[in-house]
């Protein structure tokens, strides 16, 4: 899980408190699942334990007390290390889509209505993402959305191929 690294990346730009970190994380990765507050603080606690972040200040005021974190030298090293290391290309777990389709086909049920409905839903999501991308203010946001769109596109192509194979099979049986 690289949430820690993304947060380190945000902190590398300057000290911030938990709420800012969450907002910046979500803004940097549109189309991904928003970060939960609990996760932000858990991660920060772990980073602090490992000496990668330090408490820079504690802001008081009218509201609750807020801790401002900054990246440490160790943290910077860890961050640069992470940026320089390529990721494993897979394997990825079979998705619910695949499980459902294969199960349906094994039971000799017609998978096409499911595939078509799924395609419509996927395209709907794609449309929303493309709209979001068209409205995106900067190139970083568009790039982040590209990743989600391309993966969604892979699913869509898989759905198309599956539908074509099921149709071919149906034609062959007739």
């Amino acid at each position: 899980m690289s949430t820690a690294h993304v947060l380190l990346g945000v902190l590398a730009g300057g000290p911030a408190h938990g709420y800012d970190l969450k907002r910046e994380h979500d803004a940097r990765l549109p189309g991904a699942k928003p970060l939960a507050y609990g996760q932000v603080y858990a991660t920060l606690a772990r980073l602090e334990r490992d000496g990668q972040v330090e408490v820079a200040a504690t802001e008081g005021g009218s509201g609750p007390e807020r801790t401002v974190y900054a990246i440490s030298e160790v943290g910077e090293e860890v961050l640069l290390d992470w940026l320089a290391t390529p990721e494993q290309p897979g394997p990825y777990a079979a998705e619910e889509l695949v499980r459902k389709t294969v199960t349906a086909l094994r039971l000799h049920r017609d998978a096409r209505p499911f595939l078509a409905a799924q395609r419509a839903l996927h395209l709907e999501r794609m449309r929303a993402l493309v709209a979001e991308q068209r409205a995106a203010p900067d190139v970083e946001a568009r790039i982040a959305l590209d990743h989600t769109i391309v993966h969604l596109d892979a699913d869509l192509r898989w759905l198309d191929d599956a539908a074509a194979r099921v149709a071919d099979e149906g034609n062959a049986l007739r």
Partner: peptide
């Protein structure tokens, strides 16, 4: 599909008819 996502609506054809 990404190009199709620019459209308001998709019409899928298969074997010369709307699927």
């Amino acid at each position: 599909n990404r190009v199709a996502a620019y459209a308001d609506r998709e019409v899928v054809l298969r074997d010369g008819a709307v699927d």
